[in-house]
Design a protein around this nucleic acid. Structure first.
Lengths: 250, 250
DNA sequence: CGTTCGATTGAGGAAGATCAATTAATGTGG
DNA sequence: CCACATTAATTGATCTTCCTCAATCGAACG
């Protein structure tokens, strides 16, 4: 259940944020949103449910920090992670059309979300057209990215899918001005596999192969932290997976 | 387990859907859009490209009739159908964020599209808030549907994916007040397979099995027309694919 | 009427799932 | 702090699904 009472007395605006260029755009956009909307801030923790499928839609959420997953659930009991969200992303668009949220949004880490009622947002957009542009851009990015996800799942073999997953995670962090040389996956192998349409064993094997090929490394303690010395090497690995098998020289 | 917090899961609430006449809602929305926007109308034919990846974004398109596919293309040459669009759907949302379209939109049939410049649309929305709601609903539906697609690809075996594809196509037609007992697929087996993440042979085999099980039928002439006597039978087939193999009675 | 493209069907093979055993991390109560 | 239980991850062995390759057939078209 959600914390109905936001506990932050000490302003927990954690993120390192982009003091330099990387992540500046995200920071600027968040600043604009915060100033213009005066959203209700809330700190969430791992496992907290932001909203649930079927729940009445009324709010959108802007992520100031933390990592979140979007989980879809079918009537016949299939459950799947269909999206991952980071700082600067929005949650809740799926609820606009049907006036009920269509999936679950769950925190995978401690984070801060900004809640704004959709009605209030529209009112604010009427006054500040820039807000509308920001909103539409966020929705547009989500549509474009969802298509890329479908494409990865449909066209890449398992190993490449895992590599591409890591690459995208690292890119997302980079865009937001965060470190990418060592990332902490907030998901179990089972969750990653679920998201990528494969089993947890296949994820594990793929990661092992990536590590064996020195494309990634594992921190000494625990296999949840992944070292990515060179993001480009991940892209190269994906291409290698796609390349036709080397012609037999005989 | 995916959720650390087990909340009582309510079944996803279905959209309002069936009011009096099937397709009335789509028709009403189109009427509103046509009146308020005075869009430029254009008739397109099979193969016509509405917009292309990389092209400068400036227009959105509302589909009055016809069938369209959204095709994604990667730098390394992979090409995939990532969406199908029908009457009442919009094209071009993917271009808003990056000011360039992110994929190709291609007509699969003769149809009529309404073109409206994004700028003009925003101006009209400022005057008629109902337009903004329509726009957001369309984007929201697209986001929700893209997630459902990802879910189908990730969680369903090949046969079920084909059945689900037909079911969704039929449902889409029904929502728009069109016939569903006999539908004409505008795509080759190869395109369907590409969309569903499988080979054309697998699509063909799946369709043959569906026909053998009398879930679908083929019109006497040509195999492009599919008879769907009962859409519910398609759903049942999907469930049968998911059901565990019947316990051996020994 | 032959050519071409799309669809079907079969046989064999490969990628990945499933099943199972082991090890590593995390947590719990004494 | 340690013994124990629990969950996550790895790795191996087998099995299934689906892909690949190939042949055939039908429909559309010039």
């Amino acid at each position: 259940m959600l914390n109905t009472v936001p506990p932050p007395k000490t302003a927990p605006v954690l993120p390192i944020a982009g003091n330099t260029c990387a992540g500046q755009q995200t920071a600027d956009t968040l600043k604009l949103l915060c100033e213009q909307l005066g959203p209700q801030r809330r700190v969430v923790h791992t496992g907290d449910v932001i909203y649930q499928a079927g729940e009445c839609f009324s709010n959108l959420y802007i992520l100031n920090s933390g990592f979140f997953k979007i989980v879809n659930l079918t009537a016949d009991g299939r459950e799947q992670v269909v999206g991952l969200k980071f700082r600067g992303d929005w949650l809740g668009f799926d609820g606009i059309a049907g006036s009920h949220y269509a999936c679950d949004a769950v925190a995978m880490d401690t984070g801060e979300i900004w809640m704004v009622s959709y009605e209030a947002l529209l009112a604010a957009c009427a006054v500040h057209p820039a807000l509308l542009q920001v909103l539409h851009s966020a929705m547009s990015r989500e549509i474009a990215h969802d298509r890329d996800s479908l494409m990865s799942v449909c066209t890449l073999p398992a190993d490449a899918r895992v590599a591409e997953f890591l690459r995208h995670w690292a890119d997302s962090l980079a865009e937001r001005g965060m470190r990418t040389d060592e990332i902490t996956l907030r998901m179990t192998r089972a969750e990653i596999g679920n998201y990528l349409g494969m089993t947890l064993e296949s994820v594990s094997r793929a990661l092992s192969r990536l590590a064996r090929d020195k494309v990634i490394g594992f921190a000494s303690k625990g296999r949840r932290d992944v070292q990515i010395p060179d993001v480009g090497a991940l892209s190269a690995f994906v291409q290698r997976c796609l390349a036709p098998p080397p012609a037999m020289l005989q």
